[in-house]
């Protein structure tokens, strides 16, 4: 089944999609994992996942399933800010759950629904991971009707998971403009890709074209995606 649904295919000239600058196209019907590089990068990771999900869902609904604690920590998705990532608020259904188990149940339910195009599960748990079995069930459910599933994690994890791709996303300084921050930039690492190679990029979100561009002339080197837990460092300042 996985073979029949390649999750990240090489981009051809005619391919659109937000990641074409990295030379790939996200293919629907699979499970992807996106982890914030640190707690403070959660907004950056949210933006990344949202851009992918909005594209994958097309005209169908997107479900954002989040643990209530995550909402309290990172804030809830804010309608007026969604459209710059290509998601119309009308197409978003938000589901607040009490714990991970509920989130997984809700994701699976949603993935099996024909009216749903993308399902994002925002999971806080870092230690245990959701497990291979649970992730496999999600991947299976995603394959069933062509909805794309995303696991959004608050921090990177090494625990095995049945995801087609794994990403680690961090913030990156924007290209400075005369008066204020420029378009958002993200430091993105593709750490696992079942169908292809891995890579690291600094991407700049182009809200007009609804795609990521490779950040021109990186001002700063991309920070390494190691486990240095920069959020802890920051917290101790």
């Amino acid at each position: 089944m996985e073979a029949a649904h390649p999750s990240l295919a090489p981009a051809r000239d005619s391919d659109t999609g937000p990641l074409r600058c990295c030379g790939c196209v996200l293919v629907p019907g699979a499970l992807h994992e996106v982890a914030a590089r640190s707690e403070s990068a959660s907004a950056a990771a949210s933006g990344f996942v949202l851009a992918l999900a909005a594209w994958a869902a097309g005209p169908r609904a997107t479900l954002w399933i989040a643990e209530e604690m995550a909402l309290a920590e990172n804030g809830a998705l804010y309608g007026p800010g969604l459209e710059s990532f290509g998601l119309q608020p009308e197409h978003l259904i938000r589901v607040a759950v009490a714990h991970e188990r509920e989130a997984l149940w809700a994701m699976e339910e949603a993935l099996r629904c024909r009216g749903v195009g993308a399902v994002i599960g925002e999971i806080r748990g870092t230690d245990r991971g959701i497990g291979l079995t649970a992730s496999r069930r999600l991947a299976l459910a995603a394959g069933h009707d062509g909805a794309t599933a995303f696991l959004l994690r608050a921090s990177p994890s090494d625990a095995p998971v049945a995801a087609a791709t794994r990403w680690i996303v961090g913030a990156a300084p924007s290209a400075a403009k005369a008066h204020g921050p420029g378009p958002p930039r993200l430091a993105v690492h593709l750490t696992r890709n079942r169908r292809g190679s891995q890579g690291s990029w600094v991407l700049e979100w182009n809200s007009v074209e609804q795609r990521f561009d490779l950040a021109a002339a990186d001002r700063q080197p991309v920070a390494e995606a190691d486990g240095d837990r920069p959020h802890r460092t920051a917290a101790s300042v």
């Binding site: 959660s42 949210s46 933006g47 309290a72 804030g75 809830a76 998705l77 804010y78 800010g81 969604l82």
Partner: peptide
């Protein structure tokens, strides 16, 4: 002016 993606409760 741009609005944020996530708004704190």
């Amino acid at each position: 002016s741009p609005r944020p993606l996530r708004l704190l409760t």
